[in-house]
Design a protein around this nucleic acid. Structure first.
Lengths: 339, 339
DNA sequence: TTGAAAGCGCTAACAT
DNA sequence: ATGTTAGCGCTTTCAA
């Protein structure tokens, strides 16, 4: 960045004006082929690359999108991220990433730092704290400033913007119904991420499905907490002392610890106990027995979110009309359930 | 980004000159307290934020670093990434990410697209293809252009830059020696990522440790390949037909599949067979039995890399003298090994 | 076909 | 204490 050559220098070296050089390099028809050749040869040689800050400033566009993710260590978010990256790069966009670590403050800070011309729009999934506190004004303000946002997975109905979600309710219905079809009568519902919006949707799917099947709801079978410690302790108790024949777990930690404790306790899986959970597919396959999961198509979510945002940035979407895309999940029948 | 207010507009509104407004907002001592107050109040109200592209252009600095990662779905890279993000943000830097997907071309493209003033430097881990083809000129060129690079984990000796690595050789010695101490005589060495530099280091650690302990090297116990399919097939054969009492696996897939097949085959772990591998800690704990792994301190690697780069960008490092930081690994004794 | 000039939004040296 | 001016590197309109 020190020795970088500029248009001005090329112009000086070659005895042209800056504007001629600029036009020549963008292959403008105004310039003669001869000059173009000379100039581009020289540019090539001196390894000229147009300074993107200057271009951005001029164009009032950055071709960059801001991505705010609650936690990159969660494989689901990593997958969505890879989908965003893929689509955005293909369209010539860069990505600036912030990790909110589930913190409202960090989320606000990220939006603040990037909404000053550094990006053309945002893709984000709402931090847990933000959802818990119901504090969405930082989103609304930035949208009012004409900066488009696309939310995925963890969204808020109180924010008007494009969204990409998974059919959480349906997936829960599907999973619960499968367990019931396979003979489960006492299905536990487990989560240690009760705060986030999708957990509630999934829980509703579970409750409604029990109702539809005339299975009474037993609160002893339900653990919904926000604390991992509390979850671990309650689960230990549940597995030891409560009779169950099915488990439906709403997050990765809930799923895998349930599996581990059940194996330890000596449950025959899936004969005596069947388990379905939300968890990373690759790792779920590595467990013994492999864990049946709900596949959420993370990369596809990311690609769709990027598409929505870029269409919005490039004014291909209708103004003030926002889309919500629902990505279908699939139940992956693995060894932890009967078929 | 449409309705954004600029210095010029504030100046016009308030009847000051642009420079006065600029100075007032940066709290310059040249400006009277009174004016400062008026201007900053107005700025506040109109939600003014200095346009970062304009600032970058002026300052010839972006406060942005480019991160190129082979594969974000690998939890190790995700962890390093989170470390980079944390440190960089604390220092006021943004992060633009590219995922090379192990491809040389994508790596070259990323460097090309970002080395035009979009970032102040790079942090990267070399793509597999790049290491296989021994093609490092894209790094060297960008360094020659005064753009600093920090490499981590997968590095190349032929590139002069700051580096952060893990004591791969030592960690392999440590793991192998532990297996030997715990009574293993026939230790398999497994990897499906033979191409990358660190695999070779780890393999050497294994070989040397066997030698030191007067254990002869048996090629039947060694699977080193770059193809997952080939690995799966060879491993199946090894587990079925070759006598072993220990496994040392160099990557996540190699480790977990070995564990899974060994459990399936009915090995008593760790009594009859002990396993150590490189894999994500959180998930390794979730396996039954939990898998002993070598902890690589991903976040710390990321933080250190970011520190090296930012020091370099801010000229706090001595010119032309490059540092290599070695992060110590630790063996996590879990249920797959004796203690 | 080429060049001059203005301007994107900001900073800062240099007037006043 | 405030303003004028120049300039970061580029694009683009208008003039030659």
């Amino acid at each position: 960045m020190k020795t970088k050559i500029t248009l001005k220098q090329i112009a000086a070296q070659l005895g042209y004006s800056v504007s001629t050089v600029s036009k020549a390099l963008t292959n403008s028809p105004e310039i003669s082929d001869d000059t173009k050749r000379r100039i581009s040869e020289f540019a090539q040689l001196s390894n000229y690359k147009p300074n993107s800050m200057a271009q951005n400033l001029k164009r009032q566009r950055t071709n960059t999108i801001g991505v705010i993710i609650p936690n990159i260590l969660n494989p689901f978010f990593a997958k969505v991220f890879s989908g965003i990256e893929k689509y955005a790069n293909a369209k010539g966009y860069n990505i600036i990433t912030y990790i909110s670590n589930e913190s409202l403050n960090k989320e606000i800070q990220a939006i603040d730092l990037l909404s000053n011309g550094a990006v053309d729009g945002f893709i984000l999934s709402i931090a847990e704290e933000t959802q818990k506190r119901n504090e969405f004004s930082h989103f609304q303000e930035v949208i009012k400033d004409n900066m488009p946002i696309v939310m995925f997975d963890r969204i808020s109905d109180s924010v008007d913007c494009d969204k990409v979600i998974v059919d959480d309710y349906d997936s829960a219905v599907h999973a619960t119904q499968h367990l019931i079809n396979m003979g489960c009568k006492r299905i536990a519902l487990l989560t240690c991420e009760a705060n986030i919006s999708i957990s509630q949707l999934r829980k509703n799917g579970y409750l409604d499905t029990l109702n539809v099947n005339n299975i009474s709801i037993d609160d002893d079978l339900i653990i919904t907490t926000n604390s991992i410690e509390e979850y671990d302790q309650k689960l230990e108790n549940l597995i030891q002392n409560i009779k169950i024949d099915g488990i439906f777990a709403l997050d990765e930690h809930a799923s895998t610890l349930a599996m581990k404790l059940a194996v330890k306790k000596g449950f025959k899986i899936p004969e005596e106990l069947q388990i379905v959970g939300f968890a990373d597919g690759a790792w779920s396959r590595r467990l013994t027995p492999s864990l049946a999961t709900i596949s959420q198509h993370g990369p596809q979510i990311g690609e769709e979110a990027a598409k929505l945002l870029i269409d919005r940035i490039e004014k291909k979407s209708e103004k003030n009309v926002y889309k919500t895309t629902i990505i279908k999940t699939e139940l992956r029948y693995r060894d932890s359930v009967k078929k």
